[in-house]
Computed example of a mutant assay.
Amino acid sequence: MRAPCANSSIRRPVASSADLAIALAAGEPSGDVLAARLLSGLRPHLPDARFHGIGGPAMAQYGFESHWPMDKLTVRGLLAVIPRYREIKGIQNALRDQLLAERPACFIGADYPGFNLGLEMQLKAAGIPTVHYIGPQIWAWRGGRIKKIIKAVSHMLVVFPFEEEIYRKAGVPVSYVGHPMAELVPVTIDEGAARRQLGLPEDANVVTIMPGSRMSELKYNTAAFVGAARLLLKRDRSLRFIAPMAGERQRQMFLQMVEQAGLQDVEITLLDGQSHTAIAAADAVLVASGTATLEVALHKKPMVIAYKMMALEWQILRHFGYQPWIGLPNILEREFVVPELLQDDASPDKLADAMWKQLTDAPHRLQLAERFTAMHHSLLRNSAQESAAAVLKVIGK
């Protein structure tokens, strides 16, 4: 039996990549994309290594073998996980037992901390090095998680520069690898090309609405977002509204919510995917809180961040935050550079008022573009190479 590995400075020599197995687990599409980026950096160094565990189609492009469908783990919301707990826990235990028997060179948890940190803790205690990518947002809420992270993680990969100091102070080996999205979005945005691609006039006044990709987000956000669009049209009939849909299920849920709210008269062009193009084409974006807010900032676009959820969840979660901001652009800038309207404040009239300022305040729009450009440069690294280099160091390659 190998001696326990307390941190990434303890390495195990590997004869060749053919002898190597690396396990990974991603629990939702964003983690699948994140892990795939890492695998794209690892595969050239480890051409014959076996990558396996739980993942999705993006990871499969790099020869990843998934033992369970990733959507078995994809549950969002504090209360939604309860009826699925036994199934998810069973998958975690089965994967743990498999990895303890196999003893891979390391385990990499791609985000999804509720599942991965518990698994990592057990694997690390057994001497299997663990890497977690990306760092949980302990700077925003649930800071007590750092105690679990210390026990669970051999090496942390973070995507925001300020996170390095947090983990380093806690004694967790850490690497800042840049944010993968900063590489996907051009620093200079061609708004005209995006509009031509979507068949929009280049001189149109375009508003992109993004109420979320999860069913729960569409359920709670759609009526308020489309209601705000109706009010904005009363101020400017020339406005064009577009909304990227993550899939057919999301499209149908969106249409259902619009019909239930009696907002069928609001003309909105629904797009199949193409979220980056929809953002690039916009004059301003009404966006649900989450990673999409960073997408909008990287496109240098004015925005209003909004979010609604089940009332009980809101009452629970509203007391856990450590910062006055929930939107990533505001967190990174440490101030309200764009408005955030949450729960009861995310009403159609308040959203419309906030969006109107984003559309019409020219000096504010210019200032935002400058700040978001600086933010883009601060997040720009070759994340595939940086994250792969950190993993290779952990496994002694």
Rank of each mutant, 00 (worst) to 15 (best):
P44F: 01
F115Q: 06
A110P: 11
P329L: 05
I316W: 02
E333P: 04
A354P: 13
S238A: 12
E267Q: 15
E333K: 06
G27H: 13
S8C: 12
A125Y: 08
A15Q: 13
F162R: 01
Y133S: 02
A282N: 09
V33L: 15
L286D: 02
P244N: 13
P4G: 09
Y167C: 00
E259I: 01
D203G: 14
L117S: 06
N382A: 10
P136E: 13
L39K: 00
V338H: 02
A278P: 02
L73T: 05
M59C: 02
G114P: 02
E295N: 09
K124G: 07
L198F: 13
A288I: 07
E102H: 13
I316T: 10
H52L: 14
Y176P: 01
A346C: 04
G290V: 04
H45Y: 06
A246M: 12
Q260R: 07
I305M: 06
G135C: 02
D32L: 06
H155F: 06
F241P: 00
I150V: 14
Y62F: 13
K124A: 07
R142V: 11
V187G: 12
G171A: 01
L342I: 05
R84C: 07
L342K: 00
I149V: 02
D48C: 07
L123T: 11
I395R: 10
R249T: 11
E28Y: 15
M355V: 04
Q92S: 14
A374N: 11
Q343E: 11
K301Q: 04
